[in-house]
Design a protein around this nucleic acid. Structure first.
Length: 922
RNA sequence: GGUCGCUUAGCUCAGUUGGUUAGAGCGCCUGCUUCACACGCAGGAGGUCGUAGGUUCGAGUCCUACAGCGACCACCA
């Protein structure tokens, strides 16, 4: 970086360069530690929630990556062994759907292509989008270890998936069976409960008459009227259920009914589940198409009649309706019922209907043969892990959400009738019809030895493989000595940063599977791994959702999606990162607005210009034969008791800021951390320190060289430390300026490899902070006063000051500072300011500006009157409390003392304001 | 239906275990081409903390009710 910089910061000029440099130099690679982690080296590692290979990164990703990257960089700079593992997810159903769409747009279908060709096509898609995602991450500066990048269908991870499946099967925790599942007729696959989203829908409740038969099978002329929201499922009815205590239907218990349209006889049964208040109090029972009906069917040992095929068209069981789509069938069936006089009524009915999470098609509950995980044993461990405090959630309330779900969990349907994904390692035998589940591809049936076996065409739920990531990325199940070293150093991972939307999908499953399988690998000391150390991560930080400026969820259909790469091009990565960090208040979604970002772009520009100022002075110094002391760089800036106040002060501020930032990051308070740095750099360093230090940066002949050198050294030292403080938040800009300070000879390859500023609280120079606070207040009062009485901006004026001895010492010692910053040319200490001058009063001093006042007497009177009222009110309130025995007896001493001091100060201000009012001319 | 969260300045949000006169950024008003920066500098206005009660010496903070907003979970046909 040359020292003659353009005035305005242009992020695009440097960001690509550093992004490429970091990757090229492998700065963030964390090879397997050669020694087991017994060396006492603290580790910090995060497993990146793998983005789906379904498209580009969105703002949610950028936010998540920003938070993670800040933490990762921060820990790295604290000297810890840091690892952030990147990867991407094959995202079975989501990806398959998009590729299907693409294929259809080209005039063909996946069925026409065939399984093999289609999968090949998906791999091509994956190469393209997987690559895009990763290059976007690089562009955003994510300091991940690219050497460890994975894809959830890598051979290595496939081994883990197969092992997990087979082991759970052997343990009796995976079973296959015919149950009601949520079926998506468009995707033509089963989906899990979590993949169904419910929408409120204004539908109808059809009331249908089922004729009652007598014992001989003849119609008695009586009807039993049922109510249903899905009349088409009538074709598969096997009974009608009523509540056993429902008086209306007691005479029908055990009777038979004629199923309309199908004309088969079905029984009237009784079941406690039926609620007499709903509908007609009589429910048609269709075990193959409704989960409740299925349960009733099981209880009453009823058959199941499946009347729909994979695409939700009526099948051969549906008689004359066979071949019709479910909605067409509904229409026709209702019309036929009406024609036969069996339709008793149609009522409006609002209810929730389930849609496929991915393609929004109406889900059809349907009986089918699927694989399930018997989840309770895994859930028990996962519940204990959180209840016993082995995993901590922030914000804490998510622990409740998690436990609530985990305690009401149902078995997990893991099979999908898709092509894209991990094939289920099960082979069905054509001879004995039994199933062989195996780690290695078998050649014959394990039960009868027949060679007529075929692998199941089903694949696994994509979350089955991603749920295993915490163990599989470290080599489970085949643990080599290298893997063992990784496990020792990095398992459990330190932290998971993710969104609440995948709390159940992914976080919960990782906890279940991680706790279950990591026990294979003993602890570093060889002892068996217990629950405490088998968790996949110690902490879970759930971040907020990034919404648009109107708090609307970003979605493609709404067209309000902000592309991170576009926004980054416009404002710079650092500014966007800083914006996200500063808005990351826990538990509150981010309303991403451009105004805020403009503010942080300005901040980047401010840093840039402060750097220009610094380099300008370094250059001027060089010309004057002065150079700053390089040895002060890289650590914490210091200033001895003899250093000028501004130096002692800015160093103290730096220490205090470092302290606050470290504490904030410890608590995932990215907003507090960002604000603290912002406030320090702009509010303290630029607005005050730089303005003051200009007085000491004198390169003229005969100037005090020692003073100039010291000032320059402090300036560079504090600036350099600030860059390190800021670096996790703004990695690009800080990298650029930091390299320039070292003029091509930096002590390490990157600022990211230096040490983060930290401090000992006790080392902070409190008296410097106090003295400077007095001076700042003093200067601000003079400036305000000047403005009030209309002193021109450029004019320099004398002032009169009345104050106590100790403040007078501070003021007179720093007279030059006051003269420069408040535009004062003479400072007179007086015992009483001249009555005719306008003055400002604080508890510590009175200050008057010697100037022909151009004040509006009326306005001044109004202001003083207002002040007096305010002081009187404050005084009354303070006195009321101080006169309260309860307060004096119970409030802590420092509060009482504080209030007393405040009372005294307010009294003083009140007196002065009154006097001021009296002295105003008529 | 169940559970959880939110309501503080015009806007977006902070506000630690209750403790002195409630903060920030943006926006707004006034003045300023001060030799790093107009993506800037300086000064300023603006809030009875959703409503009503309660606990307390003391409530933005704790409790109760109500209103409004939002999220998640749920098999009532």
């Amino acid at each position: 970086m040359p020292h003659d910089l353009p005035k305005a910061y242009d992020p695009t000029a440097i960001e690509d360069h550093w992004a490429g440099y970091w990757v090229r130099e492998k700065l963030f690679a964390q090879p397997t530690p050669s020694k087991p982690s017994q060396d006492g080296h603290p580790s910090f590692d995060i497993l990146l929630p793998p983005p789906n290979v379904t498209g580009n990164l969105h703002m949610g990703h950028m936010f998540e990556h920003t938070e993670s990257d800040i933490l990762i960089r921060w820990h790295r700079m604290r000297g810890e062994r840091v690892l952030w593992i990147p990867g991407t997810d094959h995202a079975g159903i989501a990806t398959q759907m998009l590729v299907e769409r693409q294929v259809v747009s080209e005039g063909t279908t996946r069925q026409q292509m065939g399984r093999e060709a289609f999968i090949e096509r998906v791999w091509k898609w994956r190469e393209h989008y997987g690559g895009t995602i990763l290059s976007q991450m690089k562009r955003l500066g994510a300091s991940v270890d690219w050497d460890r990048e994975y894809f959830t269908m890598d051979a290595r991870l496939s081994v883990a998936v197969r092992e997990a499946f087979v082991r759970l099967y052997e343990q009796g925790l995976i079973y296959r069976g015919a149950y009601i599942v949520n079926w998506c007729p468009r995707c033509q696959t089963a989906i899990s409960d979590l993949e169904v989203v419910y929408d409120e829908h204004k539908g109808h409740l059809w009331e249908i008459r089922y004729p009652v038969h007598d014992d001989a099978g003849r119609e008695t002329g009586e009807w039993l009227t049922i109510a249903t929201t899905r009349p088409e499922t009538l074709l598969g009815d096997v009974a009608v259920a009523v509540h056993p205590d429902d008086e209306r239907y007691k005479h029908l218990h055990g009777k038979k009914l004629r199923l309309p349209l199908m004309n088969r006889e079905i029984p009237v049964i009784t079941d406690e589940w039926v609620s007499p208040e709903f509908g007609t109090g009589a429910v048609k029972v269709t075990p193959a198409h409704d989960p409740n009906d299925f349960a009733i069917g099981q209880r009453h040992d009823l058959p199941s009649v499946n009347v729909m095929d994979d695409t939700a068209h009526i099948n051969a069981e549906g008689g004359k309706y066979a071949g019709l789509d479910r909605f067409a069938a509904r229409k026709e069936i209702v019309a036929d019922l009406e024609a036969q006089g069996l339709l008793a009524g149609i009522k409006d009915h609002v209810h929730n209907v389930g849609h496929c999470d991915r393609c929004k098609t109406l889900v059809e509950p349907r009986l089918s043969l699927q694989w399930f995980v018997k989840i309770q044993p895994l859930a028990d461990k996962a519940i204990a892990a959180v209840k016993e405090g082995h995993i901590r959630f922030t914000p804490e309330m998510y622990a409740k959400t998690y436990l609530n779900w985990m305690e009401n969990i149902h078995d997990w349907c893991i099979s999908r009738q898709l092509w894209w994904g991990h094939r289920i390692p099960a082979w069905h035998c054509g001879a004995c019809h039994k199933t062989t589940v195996s780690r290695e591809n078998p050649t014959k049936c394990a039960h009868c030895g027949s060679e007529k076996i075929e692998q199941s065409t089903d694949v696994l739920d994509t979350w089955f493989s991603s749920g295993l990531l915490p163990v599989s990325v470290f080599g489970w199940p085949k643990i080599t000595p290298e893997d063992r070293a990784d496990f020792d150093a990095f398992y459990p991972t330190s932290l998971l940063v993710t969104g609440f939307d995948i709390l159940f999908f992914w976080v919960a499953r990782m906890i279940m599977l991680g706790c279950w399988f990591s026990t294979d690998v003993p602890n570093p000391d060889g002892s068996p791994r217990e629950l405490k150390d088998s968790v996949p991560f110690r902490e879970v930080h759930i971040h907020a959702l990034v919404r648009d400026a109107n708090r609307e969820k970003m979605s493609k259909t709404k067209g309000n999606v902000i592309d991170p790469i576009e926004i980054v091009k416009q404002y710079g990565t650092d500014a966007v990162r800083f914006t996200l960090a500063s808005m990351a208040s826990p538990g509150t979604d981010i309303a991403f607005n451009v105004a805020r970002m403009e503010g942080y772009r300005a901040f980047a520009n401010k840093i840039w210009n402060a750097a220009r100022f610094m380099f300008m002075n370094i250059d001027r110094a060089a010309e004057a034969g002065i150079s700053f002391d390089q040895t002060v760089l890289g650590g914490m800036s210091t200033a001895g008791p003899d250093a000028p106040l501004e130096a002692r002060w800015i160093v103290a501020e730096l220490h205090e800021t470092a302290n606050n930032v470290n504490q904030a990051l410890d608590n995932y308070r990215f907003d507090d951390a960002a604000n603290a740095i912002y406030q320090f750099f702009w509010g303290s360093f630029c607005d005050w320190y730089l303005e003051i230090v200009k007085l000491s940066l004198n390169f003229d002949e005969g100037a005090d060289k020692a003073r100039t050198t010291a000032a320059l050294t402090t300036l560079v030292s504090v600036f350099e430390a600030s860059l390190r403080l800021l670096s996790p938040f703004m990695p690009f800009l800080t990298e650029e300026v930091w390299h320039a300070i070292y003029d091509g000879n930096p002590p390490t390859k990157s600022i990211a490899l230096t040490r983060y500023p930290k401090t000992d609280c006790l080392a902070i120079d409190r008296s410097a902070l106090q003295e400077m606070a007095l001076l700042q207040e003093f200067i601000v009062e003079v400036r305000a006063l000047r403005k009030e009485i209309g002193v021109e901006e450029r004019a320099v004026v004398p002032i009169e000051v009345r104050t106590d001895e100790s403040s007078q010492t501070v003021v007179s010692r720093n007279q030059a500072m006051i003269e420069r910053l408040a535009r004062v040319n003479e400072l007179r200490f007086v015992s009483q300011t001249s009555a005719e001058l306008a003055k400002h009063t604080t508890p510590q001093f009175d200050v008057a500006v010697v100037y022909e006042r151009k004040i509006d007497v009326a306005a001044e009177r109004e202001k003083l009157t207002k002040d007096i009222a305010k002081y009187e009110k404050g005084l009354a309130s303070a006195r009321r409390q101080l006169g309260n025995d309860g307060f004096l007896a119970k409030a802590p001493a420092h509060v009482v003392e504080g209030l007393k001091k405040q009372e005294a100060e307010t009294r003083l201000l009140l007196e002065k304001a009154r006097a001021g009012l009296d002295s105003l001319p008529e």
